[in-house]
Design a protein around this nucleic acid. Structure first.
Lengths: 165, 165
DNA sequence: CAGATATTGTTGCCTAGGCTACAATAGGCA
DNA sequence: TGCCTATTGTAGCCTAGGCAACAATATCTG
């Protein structure tokens, strides 16, 4: 399997991710939420009263990103920020009635989308796929944690005029 | 497998995608490119002189997004736009010398990242994983193609038994 | 040929994520 | 108690993608 092959696993995996995101986003738009917002919804549904930092951790996303997401969702009346009595820095997050009501519908679409995507696989194959993906995920998590120091060191002569990124 | 389970395949897949992106981005930053820019690099390396629309198609990305990507990469001296003699609307894209020089290095990192991620899997398991992912991808592609029209209604996916490439 | 139609790239406005710096606040410790 | 450090959320500046509208060209059709 050459990296220049279009069947290269690296390509395929990112394609799968992109496609599932695209399809789900499109199916869910009619409810007035994006996929990212739905993820917030599903986390807060299970853990109402979480702080913004806790939410960011759950989503494994930057605190700032989470904060801006909350801004948008607050504007759309999906979530509420309430101050914490004990710690005046933290803001606790709660879903609105409307958001809780939509939750089940979103889950149905999410499940169906994944089911549809896996439709060509037999039950055994699905189980295998899920298991393999889970192991790859664990590996990646350890890599993400460890790489900070410099596992794959790259003594790269940067092209002279590269824009800093 | 309940959707509220953290092992839910929907979560796992998006986690895998996110993590691989994160790890790769971090490893590649030392070269002065982002992951998205590296994708452009690899496409143009194989197909120099492509138009922007062709590039957008290759990346399966919006024309506007591709255009802005080219803006950034041109500013960083990775890519050149040249007018087409026959059609004054199109701009043909060419990598700079530096970009071509960096190409191999990027591939090495990409391969190594994927290899590292799949390290816990045996050769057989890797082959299985790749094959399953490829079939899921094909299914998603047919869904993405078919879903377009109706936003509200969710058309049934084709239960195709596509041959893995 | 002229007029309608399609394609190409750009721009504006949106969501979304990352990194850094910062003010407000908590908490630890001398 | 008072200082120093850590944490929390926010704001600024970046990359990146999506959709819609638009001008400049090409192309197709009557």
């Amino acid at each position: 399997m050459s990296p220049d092959d279009d069947g290269y696993i690296g390509y395929v995996l990112s394609d799968v991710a992109r496609l599932i995101r695209t399809v789900f986003d499109r199916r869910v738009r009619s409810l007035g939420l994006t996929r990212a917002q739905w993820l917030v919804l599903s986390r807060l549904y299970r853990r109402p009263g979480a702080s913004q930092t806790e939410l960011a951790d759950m989503l494994e996303v930057d605190r700032a990103s989470a904060g801006r997401m909350i801004d948008r969702m607050e504007k759309g009346h999906w979530v509420e920020r309430r101050g914490d009595a004990g710690d005046r820095r933290v803001k606790r997050l709660y879903l609105t009635q409307e958001a809780r009501r939509v939750h089940a519908r979103m889950w149905a679409i999410a499940e169906r989308t994944v089911d549809d995507a896996l439709a060509p696989l037999s039950p055994l194959e699905r189980a295998r796929f899920t298991g393999l993906a889970a192991r790859v995920k664990e590996q990646l998590q350890s890599m993400a944690g460890a790489d900070g120091a410099g596992t794959t060191e790259v003594p790269a002569p940067r092209p002279s005029r590269a824009a800093a990124s």
